[in-house]
């Protein structure tokens, strides 16, 4: 099988992502061209001395649209990375932060902190929730008799349902009026109203948790034939698993605290990337991240512009696209589930 070299792939996907970012900013009620986007970015980064774009349009581009588009890219990249890593670590082609209950756990943690009045600590709450949900899912999988993809998914679904019920209870009990609607939309996965500090928070999380994970690519390859094989190839299986699962829980938690529970991205993007790169994680992880970033930029753009002026939670779109692909993966792997 001939595969394109990693450098070519990464460079073309980077170009695609950059073009997507700029084009996505031009979508929206105010008519803005790609040139204005470049000019605004250049001015804010101090690359050009004068901003030819009017104050109002500058505000629309820089304050309103850019943080959201950037956050979408980061969330997409992060979810794809988490999905690819979880699929490798659990040798489960159906693993994904959403299906294994992490996203629901993160939502519960975030909502609990929000309603307790600690809105600023929502990312922390989401991380605690995600880690707890991951721990419970793994525990239930063990209780079911050891890890198979089906058992992990069933465990994930039950933990997810539990966390979702608790979240609904909390919201029903304490939220009122506008905040009710806002929380609901966020729960379904929405990047609506993302501001710079939030975009920078997810970016920092992606760099801090994502880079070490990217570097573990070759160790993940060693898992292709299971834990024993990985150990005989020099991988400290126990330690690596804890580090990577902890890293994915942290990243998922922070992504969910900003973008809500956006499903299926972590599942489908790695599968698509694998068609190009095969299972070598040194190539798969960066390709999945870049692909996930562009994918999320466009689905989020669709979410806010398809039914203008009404906005759709982007989680609905990813689920509409993702659920059929999930079924496809299920059918393809039916012999092992």
């Amino acid at each position: 099988m001939n595969r394109p070299t990693l450098a070519v792939l990464v460079l073309s996907l980077l170009a695609l992502l950059l073009a997507s970012l700029v084009l996505a900013v031009t979508f929206g009620p105010a008519d803005i061209g790609p040139l204005e986007v470049w000019q605004t970015i250049g001015w804010h980064l101090g690359l050009v001395a004068e901003n030819p774009v009017s104050r109002l349009r500058d505000a629309i581009i820089w304050d309103l649209r850019l943080p959201r588009v950037l956050a979408a890219a980061v969330v997409g990249a992060g979810l794809a990375l988490c999905g690819a890593v979880m699929q490798a670590l659990t040798r489960n082609p159906l693993a994904d932060p959403y299906l294994l209950g992490l996203s629901s756990g993160a939502s519960l943690g975030a909502v609990a902190f929000l309603l307790a009045g600690a809105a600023l600590l929502m990312p922390l709450g989401a991380f605690i929730g995600a880690a707890a949900a991951m721990g419970l899912t793994l525990l239930v999988t063990q209780l079911l008799g050891g890890a198979t993809p089906t058992r992990a998914i069933l465990a994930g679904i039950s933990i997810s349902a539990l966390a979702a019920a608790a979240t609904s209870f909390l919201i029903f009990w304490s939220a009122t009026g506008d905040s009710y609607r806002e929380i609901l939309s966020w729960l379904m996965g929405s990047l609506s109203g993302v501001v710079w500090p939030e975009a920078l928070l997810v970016l920092a999380a992606l760099v801090l948790a994502g880079l070490p994970v990217l570097l573990s690519g070759r160790s993940l390859d060693a898992f292709a034939f299971g834990d024993t094989a990985a150990a005989t190839l020099g991988v400290d299986v126990g330690r690596l698993r804890w580090w990577l699962l902890g890293g994915t829980a942290l990243l998922t938690g922070i992504l969910v605290s900003i973008g809500g529970a956006i499903g299926f991205v972590g599942l489908i993007v790695p599968h698509v990337a694998r068609l190009v790169t095969g299972s070598r994680h040194r190539a798969l992880l960066p390709v999945a991240m870049l692909l996930g970033a562009s994918f999320m930029v466009w689905t989020d753009t669709a979410a806010r512009s398809l039914f203008e002026p009404r906005e759709l939670p982007v989680g609905i779109i990813t689920a509409l696209l993702g659920a059929p692909i999930f079924l496809g993966v299920l059918l393809r792997y039916r012999r092992i589930t």
């Binding site: 040798r91 299972s279 792997y333």
Partner: peptide, 13 residues
């Protein structure tokens, strides 16, 4: 070490 059975779902050549 060569194990008795080595299976994978990974798309490896």
């Amino acid at each position: 070490f060569v194990e008795q059975n080595s299976e994978t779902d990974a798309r490896l050549t």
